Simulated assay, not measured.
Amino acid sequence: MTGEHSSKQYDHELEGIRSKVLLMGGMVETQFEDAIECFRIGDTARAERVMAEDQAVNQLEVSLDDACSHLIVKRQPTANDLRTVMATIKVITDLERIGDEATKIARTAKSLHERGVVGIAHFDTVRTIARATGDLLHDALDAFARLDGKQALQLIAADEVVDHEFRTILRSTITFMMEDPRTISSALDTLWVAKAIERIGDHAKNIAEYVIYVVEGRDIRHTNVALDQIQAQAD
Rank of each mutant, 00 (worst) to 15 (best):
G26K: 03
L82M: 13
L112P: 00
T103V: 03
R131K: 15
N80Y: 02
L22K: 11
T168S: 09
Y10R: 15
E15D: 13
V28F: 06
R75T: 06
T223C: 02
A79G: 03
V118E: 14
T78D: 01
C38W: 05
S19I: 12
E101T: 01
K8R: 15
A158T: 10
K20H: 13
Q31P: 02
D159M: 12
G26D: 11
F39Q: 06
F176C: 05
D43Y: 01
A187N: 05
R218E: 11
A234P: 00
V118L: 08
K205S: 10
Q55C: 09
M24H: 03
V62M: 11
L22V: 04
I169G: 07
A132M: 14
T88Q: 02
V118T: 15
G119W: 00
R115H: 09
T173S: 15
G134N: 14
T44P: 00
C38Q: 08
M1R: 07
E165V: 09
D159W: 10
L71N: 09
L147K: 07
G26R: 06
V162C: 10
Q55N: 13
G217I: 09
K90H: 06
A102E: 04
T168G: 04
Q55E: 12
E61W: 05
I41D: 06
V193N: 05
L147C: 07
Q76W: 05
D65Q: 12
L112A: 00
I36S: 10
A35E: 05
E165M: 14
D202E: 04
A52C: 02
